[in-house]
Computed example of a mutant assay.
Amino acid sequence: MVHPVAVAGFLVAILPLIATPGASLALLVQYVTEGGRRRALPVVLGTVTGLYVHAALAAAGLSALVMHSSLAFTVVKLIGAVYLIGLGLWTWRTAAPTPRRSRPRRTDSVYAQALLANVLNPKAAAIYLTLVPQFVTPQHPLPGQILTLATAHALLITLWLTAWTFLILHATRVLRAPRCKRRAARATSAVLIALGVRSAVT
């Protein structure tokens, strides 16, 4: 069992990381702009699932293996970078220059994109290898403590993305204008490409 003070400290430590714009927020802006609030749920669920994947890997010690092997870490980082850049290029390509009828994206596709964007981000894994050890005690079973911190992390990022969803919906009339919609999609693609490039070179 993790002490409530430790959970609070962990949340304070990761809040700046959550507040930093990333792939999850970029995907949220894109899909909520296109399809409304119903598209926010698969983005949030995909992101949260990714957090639990990292937590499970940390509990099993697999993430530690990746982080301590420079080759494995580089491979994971490059895979994530290629995915983000590819997703960004695809988003740019689908921002049509003129309004046209498009088929709505399946919810499971949105979920998979958000999940992969989080799972393939080695910096997300680093949270559970650098910050989590500061807030657990070896006298108690680690898996339960990591699960508790991951759940707190998931709740905080859910609140953050939900708040952004309402902000996006508030501006939905402007954002859904064809010209603004294209600009929003291209801004999203630029963010994803930039995140991918940064992940590849750092």
Rank of each mutant, 00 (worst) to 15 (best):
residue 23 A to L: 02
residue 80 G to M: 09
residue 8 A to G: 05
residue 106 R to K: 12
residue 20 T to M: 13
residue 158 T to M: 14
residue 93 R to I: 10
residue 134 Q to F: 09
residue 45 L to K: 06
residue 186 R to V: 05
residue 106 R to V: 08
residue 107 T to F: 10
residue 108 D to K: 06
residue 193 I to W: 06
residue 64 A to I: 06
residue 62 L to R: 05
residue 75 V to D: 03
residue 137 T to E: 09
residue 128 Y to F: 15
residue 182 R to I: 07
residue 91 T to S: 11
residue 5 V to T: 15
residue 40 A to C: 10
residue 67 M to S: 03
residue 27 L to P: 04
residue 124 A to K: 11
residue 74 T to F: 12
residue 194 A to W: 13
residue 34 E to L: 11
residue 70 S to E: 04
residue 57 L to K: 00
residue 54 H to R: 11
residue 121 N to W: 04
residue 119 V to E: 12
residue 89 L to F: 10
residue 120 L to V: 09
residue 149 L to R: 08
residue 53 V to T: 11
residue 83 Y to A: 11
residue 131 L to H: 14
residue 74 T to C: 09
residue 10 F to R: 05
residue 97 P to H: 09
residue 106 R to E: 11
residue 76 V to A: 15
residue 134 Q to K: 14
residue 126 A to R: 03
residue 48 V to I: 05
residue 64 A to N: 08
residue 102 S to D: 06
residue 100 R to I: 02
residue 119 V to Y: 08
residue 93 R to T: 05
residue 95 A to G: 02
residue 48 V to C: 13
residue 23 A to R: 02
residue 167 L to M: 10
residue 103 R to L: 03
residue 122 P to E: 01
residue 190 A to P: 00
residue 128 Y to N: 04
residue 121 N to I: 02
residue 21 P to A: 03
residue 145 Q to Y: 09
residue 142 L to F: 01
residue 4 P to T: 11
residue 8 A to Y: 01
residue 49 T to S: 13
residue 9 G to M: 02
residue 58 A to T: 08
residue 150 A to L: 02
residue 11 L to Y: 01
residue 55 A to L: 11
residue 150 A to P: 01
residue 27 L to S: 01
residue 81 A to F: 04
residue 12 V to I: 11
residue 25 L to E: 01
residue 198 R to A: 15
residue 25 L to M: 10
residue 199 S to G: 00
residue 144 G to H: 06
residue 117 A to H: 00
residue 134 Q to C: 10
residue 14 I to D: 10
residue 98 T to D: 03
residue 196 G to D: 03
residue 61 G to T: 03
residue 40 A to K: 07
residue 38 R to D: 01
residue 146 I to T: 03
residue 128 Y to A: 13
residue 150 A to Q: 09
residue 113 Q to N: 07
residue 52 Y to L: 14
residue 24 S to T: 00
residue 23 A to N: 05
residue 157 I to C: 06
residue 73 F to C: 07
residue 110 V to T: 12
residue 76 V to H: 07
residue 105 R to S: 15
residue 21 P to K: 10
residue 132 V to G: 07
residue 162 T to I: 15
residue 1 M to K: 12
residue 164 W to T: 11
residue 198 R to F: 10
residue 89 L to I: 15
residue 52 Y to V: 15
residue 13 A to F: 15
residue 110 V to W: 04
residue 88 G to H: 03
residue 200 A to Y: 01
residue 41 L to F: 14
residue 73 F to Q: 12
residue 17 L to V: 08
residue 67 M to F: 08
residue 12 V to K: 02
residue 122 P to D: 12
residue 138 P to D: 14
residue 9 G to F: 02
residue 66 V to E: 10
residue 83 Y to T: 07
residue 180 C to S: 12
residue 186 R to A: 01
residue 15 L to Q: 11
residue 64 A to H: 09
